[in-house]
Lab assay of single mutants.
Amino acid sequence: SPEVQIAILTEQINNLNEHLRVHKKDHHSRRGLLKMVGKRRRLLAYLRNKDVARYREIVEKLG
């Protein structure tokens, strides 16, 4: 489901952010981070168009 995919991506994004705080010059990982953020944004847009209630619920849960 989109909610699960968004939750997994959010966790991976948070982990990668911590990694990049330590390894500032790791541009390869930064590119992966940007791809993940874009994918999460697309999934959220899809969910917002399909079911606003589910969209609001996941945004509330994940912050």
Rank of each mutant, 00 (worst) to 15 (best):
G38M: 15
R40I: 14
K61F: 09
L33P: 00
K61R: 08
I8V: 07
Y46R: 09
R30S: 05
I8C: 11
L47I: 07
I13Y: 01
H28T: 11
P2W: 14
R48Y: 13
R40D: 00
K24L: 09
A7S: 07
V4A: 13
K24F: 08
L9T: 01
R48A: 07
E11N: 06
K39M: 13
E60V: 08
L9S: 01
R42W: 08
L34V: 08
V59Y: 04
K25L: 10
L16Q: 02
A7Q: 10
H27F: 13
H19M: 05
H27C: 11
K61D: 04
A45P: 15
M36I: 08
N15C: 14
N14M: 09
H28R: 12
K25W: 13
R42G: 04
M36V: 05
L20N: 02
V22K: 11
V59H: 02
R41D: 08
R31V: 10
K61M: 13
R40L: 13
G32R: 15
L33W: 06
I8R: 11
K25G: 13
G38E: 15
L47V: 05
V59I: 13
E11W: 10
K35Y: 10
I58N: 00
N14R: 10
R31E: 08
V59P: 00
I58Y: 04
R40M: 11
Q12V: 07
K35A: 12
K35C: 11
E3T: 04
A53M: 10
R31Q: 10
P2H: 07
N14W: 06
E3L: 06
N49A: 13
I6R: 01
K61W: 15
V4M: 13
L47W: 02
R48T: 00
V4S: 10
L9I: 05
R48Q: 06
R56S: 06
N17L: 15
K24M: 08
K35G: 05
R21W: 03
D51V: 02
V59W: 06
R21L: 07
E11L: 10
E60M: 10
K25Y: 12
I6N: 00
H28Y: 08
D51K: 02
R56T: 10
E57G: 03
L62M: 09
R40Q: 04
L33K: 02
L20V: 04
G63Q: 13
Y46H: 10
A53E: 15
K24Q: 10
H19W: 15
S29Y: 05
R21Y: 04
I58R: 00
R54F: 04
L43S: 00
V52H: 11
R30L: 13
P2C: 15
V37G: 01
L16N: 01
E18I: 08
Y55S: 01
K25A: 11
I8F: 12
S1Y: 15
L34H: 08
A53N: 14
I13K: 01
Y55H: 03
L9M: 04
Y55N: 02
V52N: 11
Y55L: 02
I58L: 10
R41F: 09
L43P: 00
T10M: 07
D26C: 07
H19I: 07
R41K: 09
E3D: 05
A7T: 07
L16R: 03
E60Q: 11
D26E: 05
E57S: 06
N15D: 09
I6W: 03
N49T: 12
L34D: 05
K24P: 15
A53D: 14
K35N: 09
R41Q: 08
S29G: 10
N49F: 11
R56Q: 13
D26G: 05
L20E: 01
T10D: 02
D51R: 01
K50I: 15
V37P: 00
M36K: 06
G32E: 15
N14F: 07
K39N: 04
K24G: 13
K24A: 10
V59K: 04
V4R: 10
L9W: 04
R54K: 14
V37M: 13
S29E: 04
L43Y: 02
A7H: 10
I13T: 00
D26R: 04
K39R: 11
Q5R: 07
L34K: 10
L34Y: 10
G32V: 15
E3Y: 05
G38Y: 14
P2Q: 06
Y46D: 13
K24H: 10
E3H: 03
R21E: 05
K50Q: 13
R31F: 08
L43G: 00
R31T: 09
L20F: 06
V4Y: 15
A7W: 15
G38I: 15
N15P: 01
L34N: 07
R54Y: 04
R40E: 01
R48C: 09
N49C: 14
Q5G: 03
K39L: 14
V59E: 02
M36E: 01
R56E: 11
R42S: 06
L20S: 02
S29W: 06
H19G: 02
Y46K: 10
M36Q: 02
R30Q: 06
K25T: 12
Q5M: 11
L33C: 08
V59L: 13
V37N: 03
R54L: 14
Q5N: 05
G32W: 15
K35M: 10
V22D: 10
R31M: 11
R30W: 15
E11F: 07
N49W: 13
K61Q: 10
L43I: 06
I8P: 01
S29P: 03
V22T: 13
M36R: 06
N17A: 14
A53W: 05
G63C: 15
D51Y: 03
